[in-house]
Structures are given as C-alpha cells and as structure tokens.
C-alpha cells in the first residue's frame, strides 16, 4: 500500500479541458468586473467606488490568463488530497450530480412542505447516494430532522418553517 503520493494520481483526459475552462472563467469574471465597474458612478472621494473594483478585475484577468497559460504548458493543478479521498479512482460524476440535485430539491422543498421534510429528504438522499443502506438511512434521517426541528423551535428560539407539521406542538415554534 503506497501513501502520500504526490503526482502519481492518474490524470483524466478531461482534467486539462476543465482547467482551461476554470482559468477561462476566472479571466471572464475579471472582464465582467472591469466592464461592470465602468457603470459604477464616480464619487466625490479621491479614489471613488471604482478604483478597487478595477484592481480586482485586473487581478482576476491576469491570474485567469496565467492559469490558462500554465495549463497549456502542462503544469496542471494538483488535486487536493484528504483522509477520505481516494486519489487513485476516477471521478464519480453521478454521485456529485445526485448531491447537487438533492441540494436543489432541499431548497425547493423548504417553502413547499417545510424544513423537517426537506431536511429528511436531503440527509436520506445524500447518505443513500454515498453508499448507506436505505432502510438504515431512512429512520436516521427522519429522527435527525425532527430532533433538529424541535431543538430549533423550543431551544434556540429560531423557528424553522414547519410546513406540513404546522400547528403540531413542539415542531412548530
């Protein structure tokens, strides 16, 4: 078992394309900053509200272009490692997409059916997507969501929207 590998992780073919896109986006954000800064009205103090945005725009544009150039020269960024990260495996895009979809579902559901349901869906879905057994994850998700709801409603004095549980004692702050 080898550990603390630095450059040994297999580079995926798409990594270089992604790096170009990311560097390009940084540069694009720089251009946007420079253009939009022009619409800020000049103010009466010596520097005004524009100067700093211009400087930030230049920084973004220069570093974005430099990142693209570095990528072209083959100097790719080193992907971050971590205790739970297996740098040797391919990117699991499907799981990432599932988690993003679950977060979107969560924020839509909060206003529709209330926080407890939205939270249970997020926790259950994420645990399941990451490999938990569904019949184990489901009760944990439901209990966790209800406990947090009660703690917020009764303990912290911050009430989360109860949604379908509106009017239920303990759950509706």
């Amino acid at each position: 078992m080898s550990r603390v590998t630095t450059d040994a992780a297999p580079r995926e073919a798409s990594a270089k394309v992604e790096e170009y896109v990311f560097g390009g986006l940084v540069a694009a954000l720089g251009v946007f900053t420079l253009v939009d800064a022009g619409s800020i009205a000049a103010t009466r103090d010596a520097v005004g509200a524009r100067a700093f945005p211009y400087a930030v725009g230049v920084l973004l544009l220069v570093t974005g272009v430099a990142a693209v150039v570095a990528t072209a020269r083959g100097r790719l960024g080193e992907a971050e490692d971590g205790e739970d990260v297996d740098t040797g495996v391919r990117t699991d895009w499907l799981t990432v997409a599932k988690l993003v979809a679950l977060l979107v579902a969560h924020l839509v559901l909060i206003d529709l059916v209330g926080w407890p349901v939205a939270a249970a869906v997020l926790f259950f879905g994420a645990a399941w997507a990451l490999g938990a057994v569904w019949w184990e994850a489901l009760p944990i998700a439901v209990v966790l969501a209800l406990v947090v709801q009660v703690v917020f409603a009764s303990g912290l004095g911050l009430s989360l929207p109860a949604g379908v549980f509106e009017g239920v004692p303990l759950l509706d702050g």
């Binding site: 939270a119 997020l122 926790f123 994420a126 997507a129 490999g131 938990a132």
Partner: peptide, 15 residues
C-alpha cells in the same frame, strides 16, 4: 460511517 458523515455535513451546511 462516511455516507452519514458527509450527508450530515451537507444537511448542517444547508441549515
């Protein structure tokens, strides 16, 4: 178990 750890991180991040 990691599925619960990261599901919990996402939930509390949103909260």
């Amino acid at each position: 178990p990691r599925p619960y750890l990261y599901a919990g991180i996402l939930l509390f991040a949103a909260l």
